[in-house]
C-alpha cells in the first residue's frame, strides 16, 4: 500500500471532478442522501447531549430547545 500523499490528493481531486460532472439529477439525489445522513448523525449527537442533561451537568431544557 502506497502512502504517497501527492497521489492521494490527486486521486481525491479527480474523484471530486467526477462527482461534479455527474448529471444534475444524480447530484440532487446525492444531496438528499447527504442530508438524510447528516440528520441521522445529528440525531445521534442529540442523544448523547440528552444523556449529559440527564446526568445533571447541563441546565435542563437548554439542549432540547436547541434541537
Amino acid at each position: 500500500m502506497s502512502l504517497d500523499i501527492q497521489r492521494i490528493i490527486a486521486g481525491k481531486k479527480a474523484w471530486r471532478k467526477t462527482q461534479a460532472q455527474l448529471p444534475i439529477e444524480e447530484k440532487l439525489i446525492i444531496l438528499e442522501r447527504l442530508r438524510d445522513r447528516a440528520r441521522t448523525l445529528r440525531a445521534a449527537t442529540k442523544h448523547k447531549e440528552d444523556t449529559v442533561v440527564d446526568a445533571g451537568t447541563t441546565k435542563p431544557g437548554t439542549l432540547s430547545s436547541n434541537g
Partner: peptide, 14 residues
C-alpha cells in the same frame, strides 16, 4: 450549496 451543486460536487446542506 444547492445552487453550487449545479456546478460542483454535491456537499451536504440542511
Amino acid at each position: 450549496a444547492v445552487g453550487a451543486t449545479f456546478y460542483l460536487e454535491p456537499v451536504a446542506t440542511q
